[in-house]
Design a protein around this nucleic acid. Structure first.
Lengths: 158, 158
DNA sequence: TCAAATTCATTCGTATGCAAATGATATCAG
DNA sequence: CTGATATCATTTGCATACGAATGAATTTGA
């Protein structure tokens, strides 16, 4: 309890602040950032337990390519919320595994087009059902109604 | 819209699945993991805009040490939800900046004790008010009631 | 007691994640 | 038309994040 090395002045301060709503009593576990980080960690762990050979960002890239088809690396990054440096690493690793293929844009020579390979398409089709399970397990501590509320509010923050 | 390279068989499949609740229509942006990742990214960005010289994990370490006083590196990691390898890096960097100091445990020679320096204590006392601002800004898209609901449900998931 | 299991810390390897700088290309404005 | 801007991609550097392996120290249990 309390802060260590608490001096007499600190005790006095505490009394004053108690009248003011205990403002100095900062608890990390009540902060939205800390809980958000832990919830995210838990989800990543659940993801890994169901899909061991792909990370959530890699899955996101494949799922988005499956949804929209060939697109530029930069545009893909925008759609899956990754900056250019991050998306490059993700795509490089997917390419190394033969799940996506790259091509130069014929008109705009700056652009690098990304698309699923046949193998990548098979993989994402196989994995999407597992992703539904992962979502369910992540939300399992909530009732259906709570989960709906949570997703609505979370979307407002994202 | 729809999947690229859609064949006649795929169109047939779509009709069948439409009767079954459109199960094949997987959208990344509706998945809790993806939204959680984006909400977390947004929070980190808000954090950085207010506290530029410390990361959220570094802040968490200092705040926890301020709360509970000297503890072992391993125990600190448990309290701030970081594995041993991660917490070591965080503490190493805080040590290099003179915000924490390390000492060997006299009885249990495996343990490495971590504590705030005077400078570290000053820093965290100065930063805690900013952390409250960060929390407020992160939750700003929600009403007070929504924020309370959100935090309650998020805690259940973390 | 003492071998087995556990705990604490470190190290290595891999994978995000982002800021900043750079180079190539494309677009815009005067 | 052309210089200023903007966009796309890459690279570098730093900071989490975690699995797995390792070594040292402690605790457990037969």
């Amino acid at each position: 309890m309390g802060r260590p090395q608490m001096s007499g002045e600190d005790n006095l301060l505490r009394l004053v602040e108690a009248e003011d709503g205990d403002e100095n009593n900062y608890h990390l576990q009540d902060q939205v950032g800390f809980i958000l980080r832990k919830a995210h960690q838990r989800h990543v762990s659940i993801f890994a337990s169901h899909i061991g050979d792909l990370t959530p960002p890699q899955f996101a890239a494949l799922a988005k390519l499956y949804d929209i088809g060939e697109t530029s690396q930069n545009q893909l990054g925008t759609l899956i919320a990754m900056d250019a440096a991050t998306v490059k690493g993700v795509i490089d690793r997917l390419k190394a595994r033969g799940l996506v293929e790259l091509a130069k844009h014929e008109v705009d020579k700056r652009r690098l087009l990304v698309n699923l390979t046949a193998e990548g398409r098979e993989a994402i089709e196989r994995l999407i059902p597992l992703a539904r399970t992962i979502t369910e397990e992540t939300l399992a501590p909530l009732t259906a109604k709570e989960a709906a509320t949570f997703l609505r509010l979370l979307a407002k923050l994202a």
